[in-house]
C-alpha cells in the first residue's frame, strides 16, 4: 500500500517532505535487502522517528509501527511489527513474484484525543486533533522491488524475445511484456518464419529482421523513460525485466557494466546490433551466400 499524494483530514508525518504536515520531523524505515535459499529477507529492518510527541505515543503504547509488504501479483499482503531496534523479517520466496511494495506506517492503537505537535506546519499550529483507532499517523511509502524466478532451474534457457503469430496485424509490431520483448508477426509471415527458424542459414536474417529492430525500439523507449522521468536503469528494470539480460550481455561483450550515463549516451541502433552479434550485417552476407548458392546450383542444373 502506498499513500502517494493522498490528503488526510488531519496532519500526518510523511517521509516525503512536501507531503508532510510537520516542519522538521522525520519518519522513515531502513533495511538491507538480502536473501537466502528459502526466504526474501529484510535484514536489519527498523524505523527512525524524529518527533517527540509521536515518540511519546509509541512509548505509552498508544501507537505502533508496522511494515507492510504487498505483492499484488501473488495476492500477498502481510504486516510486520518493527521497532527502532534492527531485526530481520523473513518472507518465503514462494509468496512473492514480480513487483513487491514495502512501506511503513505508524498508526493509532486506540482513540487518541487532543493530539498536537509543536512541529506542525503553520496551518495546523496550535490545533488539537482527535485521532481514531487504527488511523495512520506517519508514513513512509517505501520501496518497490522485484522478485524474479529463474525458470531455467527446471526449464530450458529462454530468449528475451517472444515471436508470436498475430492474426490481427499485417505489419510487425513490438511490445514490452515485462520479462520478454514480444514481436507480433502477421500470421502468413509467421508461417514462413516458423518453417525456417531452425535453419542455421536464416538465424542472422531473422535476428536482423526481427530481433534487432525490436531491441532498438525498446531500448529507445527505456532511454526516453529515463530522460523524462529521471529514472535509473535499475528503476527501469522493474518494468523492463529483460534489461537485466541486456546488461549481462553488455558486460560479457565489453567487460564493463552498462551504467546509466553510458546507456543514456548510447546510440541504441548500434547498441542493439552489438548486443545481438551484429546480425544485421551478417544477414546480408548470408543472403548473398544463399542466393549465390542457388544461382550456382541453377547453373549446374543447366
Amino acid at each position: 500500500m502506498q499513500i502517494g499524494n493522498k490528503l488526510f483530514p488531519y496532519p500526518i508525518l510523511n517521509r516525503t517532505k512536501n507531503l508532510s504536515a510537520y516542519k522538521t520531523s522525520n519518519f522513515y524505515f531502513e533495511y538491507d535487502e538480502t536473501d537466502d535459499e528459502a526466504d526474501f529477507v529484510l535484514h536489519n529492518a527498523h524505523y527512525v522517528l524524529q518527533n517527540d510527541e509521536l515518540r511519546d505515543l509509541v512509548a505509552n503504547g498508544k501507537a505502533e509501527v508496522k511494515l507492510l509488504v504487498e505483492c499484488s501479483p501473488t495476492v500477498f499482503r502481510e504486516n510486520y511489527a518493527i521497532t527502532e531496534e534492527p531485526s530481520d523479517i523473513r518472507i518465503p520466496f514462494g509468496s512473492l513474484k514480480d513487483r513487491v511494495v514495502i512501506s511503513c506506517f505508524m498508526y493509532a492503537k486506540e482513540n487518541i484525543t487532543c493530539f498536537s505537535s509543536s512541529d506542525f506546519l503553520e496551518d495546523y499550529s496550535g490545533y488539537q486533533f482527535d485521532i481514531d483507532k487504527y488511523s495512520i499517523l506517519a508514513v513512509d511509502d517505501g520501496y518497490t522491488t522485484r522478485i524474479e524466478y529463474d525458470d531455467t532451474i527446471d526449464d530450458k534457457v529462454s530468449s528475451i524475445f517472444l515471436i508470436i503469430s498475430n492474426e490481427d496485424t499485417d505489419v510487425i509490431k513490438y511490445r514490452n511484456q515485462g520479462t520478454k520483448i514480444v514481436i507480433d508477426v502477421p500470421s502468413d509471415a509467421f508461417t514462413a518464419y516458423d518453417t525456417l527458424k531452425t535453419n542455421e542459414y536464416t538465424r542472422n536474417i531473422f535476428f536482423g529482421l526481427l530481433a534487432i529492430p525490436a531491441l532498438q525500439f525498446m531500448l529507445q523507449q527505456v532511454q526516453v523513460d529515463m530522460k523524462v522521468n529521471d529514472t535509473t536503469l535499475d528503476d527501469e528494470t522493474v518494468d523492463f525485466v529483460w534489461l537485466e539480460s541486456v546488461r549481462n550481455a553488455y558486460k560479457r561483450i565489453n567487460d564493463n557494466d552498462l551504467d546509466d550515463s553510458t546507456f543514456l549516451k548510447a546510440d541504441v541502433e548500434v547498441l542493439a546490433q552489438e548486443l545481438l552479434n551484429k546480425s544485421s550485417s551478417k544477414a546480408l552476407d548470408d543472403v548473398f551466400g544463399i542466393i549465390t548458392q542457388q544461382q550456382m546450383e541453377a547453373l549446374i542444373d543447366e
Binding site: K6, K66, N79, Y107, D132, Y134, I136
Partner: peptide, 13 residues
C-alpha cells in the same frame, strides 16, 4: 480504510 491502516484492524472490529 482510507485513513486507517486497514491491515491491523482486528477481526472483531
Amino acid at each position: 480504510g482510507s485513513v486507517r491502516l486497514i491491515d491491523v484492524v482486528s477481526e472483531e472490529d
